[in-house]
Write a protein that binds this DNA or RNA. Sequence first.
DNA 1: TCACATATATGTCTTATACATATAGTGTCC
DNA 2: GGACACTATATGTATAAGACATATATGTGA
Lengths: 141, 141
Amino acid sequence: MHESDPGSISRPRRRCCQAADGTQRQLGRGRGALLEPALLIALARSEAHGYDLVRAIEEMTGGDVVPDTGGLYRLLRRLEIEGVVTSSWQESGSGPQRREYRLTDEGRALLAHWMEHLAVRRDALDRLIRAGTDQSRGWRR
Amino acid sequence: MHESDPGSISRPRRRCCQAADGTQRQLGRGRGALLEPALLIALARSEAHGYDLVRAIEEMTGGDVVPDTGGLYRLLRRLEIEGVVTSSWQESGSGPQRREYRLTDEGRALLAHWMEHLAVRRDALDRLIRAGTDQSRGWRR
DNA sequence: TCACATATATGTCTTATACATATAGTGTCC
DNA sequence: GGACACTATATGTATAAGACATATATGTGA
């Protein structure tokens, strides 16, 4: 019907990233779909427990991806249900109990799929960045 | 409490991408947070109406980002409310009515912010891909 | 008349993400 | 021994993006 005017204009405007405390910990409002592949890559390197994975992922991405621990554990649970990882409680000596996760064959297959995927996404991202950079250099139209 | 075993194991397993029809149109289950920056970049190049933007974005990303039209129009509306774009109906001759969008100064500022952001994300993605590739080459631990 | 392309728009369900919070063990510093 | 910090796993919940279906209107060509 082609109607409707947008409401009465401008607001504070959130940034495209930014956590609640004002720090920039997330990638594009946190959404870059990097958590699952990062987790799989970390686990392909070595079996690990959840808390380790948080730091492994942070390190692998140069500090740019700092997973939410809640989300990470939920993701691990989901991946286990889907047969991508298996887990077992460690009967270690000291400290709180820890669950150790390892990739299954299916998990390795999924990782391989993700790798192709990330390459495609990087290409798309590169093209976008180039388009945007050319733009700001000023040769319009 | 540390309890709970995940349910009775494996399921069909969705891919990390794939649309409902089996085609691969999305990036990582569609979530790459590329739509907003792609739209801003396209609009920085030239004012345009929504339908054009779909194709411009597709072209800019080498066909890897095919925006959902519904989401795109909703995004445009949101951006207008936030003062990032302005729009006006075109009184063109033939065809259905079209709304033309252009970036505001605030929009250009947001784009600049996005550009820094995309660069960070690309670096994170590169590190991830490198970590995963090294991994599959087999030098474990 | 019917299909198709252009063009804008809404309805709605699912999922990820973000953030807060709960819990428990272990060490340390005063 | 109490306060605190760190390790470790987990749940509750609100929001927002995304995916898909569908509605609408105009115009073209078979």
